[in-house]
Amino acid sequence: MSQTRLEKRFADLKEEGRGGLVTFVTAGDPDFETSLEIVKGLPDAGADVIELGMPFSDPMADGPAIQASSLRALRNGMTLSKTLDLVRAFRQDNQDTPIILMGYYNPIYIYGVDKFLADAKTAGVDGFIIVDLPPEHDDEFCIPTLDQGLHFIRLTTPTTVGGRLPKVLNNTSGFVYYVSILGITGTAAASDSAIHDAVARLKAETDLPVAVGFGIRTPEQAANVATVADAAVVGSAIIDTLKENLDDDNQAKPGLSQAVLEYVRTLADGVRGSRT
C-alpha cells in the first residue's frame, strides 16, 4: 500500500533525524480569511503537520484559550462545511503538509458521518482527532474513517494504563497523540522526565510515531519534547499570540497572521535545533 501524506511526513522526519512540529489553530479564528492566511503560511513557518480545530460550542476538553477561539470562529459564521472549504483552499497550493481535523463529534454527527468523510477526503483532509470518541465507540466514526483510507488519531493520557493501552492503540493510525497532563488544553506542562517515561512506555507498545501535546508553550519546551517524541504539538500558546493581535471587537488587527507565523517560526527553530 502506498504511503499516506501523513505517513510520508513522519517517515521524512525520521530520515531528517528530527522531531516534528504539529501546530493547532482553530479553523475560522478570528475569521475565515485571516484563518486561511495563517494556515497557508504555516508550512513555510515550519509546521510539519497542521491540526485544524473544528469549532464547537461546548469544547469540554479545552481550556479558556481554545474555548474563546472556538467561540470567535462561530460568532464570525464558521461552520463545519466552511472548515472543509478552508482545507480545500489550502490544498490548492499545498499537497505535502498533512491536515488533521480536531474537535468534537456532534457537528460531524449532524453533518452525517458518510457524507462528512467523503467531503473531507475530497477537500484534502488526512485524518481526525475526535476528543469525545473513545475506543468504546469505534463503530461510530473511527472504523468508517479507516475504511475511507483516512487516519484516526487517538489521544492517550496518563490515565491510559494497564490493559487499556492496547485497546486505545488498536485502530489508531497515523500517529499517537500523548496528552502529557491530566487536564484540559492550555494549562500546566508535564515535566520532561514524565514525558520521557511516557513516550518510552508508548514506544514499547506501538510502532506508530508519538506526538506529545497539552501544555507546551515555549520553543524550549517544544525542543525538549521533540528530542524524545516524534513531534511536539503546540496549540493554546499559538492562539494566545493570535489573541494579542485582536482589537476590542475580537477582529484581526493588521499584521495578525504575520505575528502568529513569526511565533510558529520560533517554535520550529526550537524543534529543528533540538537534535543537532
Binding site: 476538553a61 469525545d132 468504546e136 465507540h137 487499556r164 496528552v179
Partner: peptide
C-alpha cells in the same frame, strides 16, 4: 451493557475520563 437505551446514551467522553 454499553449504556445504550435504543440509540441513546453511551459514553462519549475524553480518554482521560474513560478509565474512571
Amino acid at each position: 451493557e454499553r449504556g445504550h437505551f435504543g440509540i441513546f446514551g453511551g459514553r462519549y467522553v475524553a480518554e482521560t475520563l474513560m478509565p474512571l
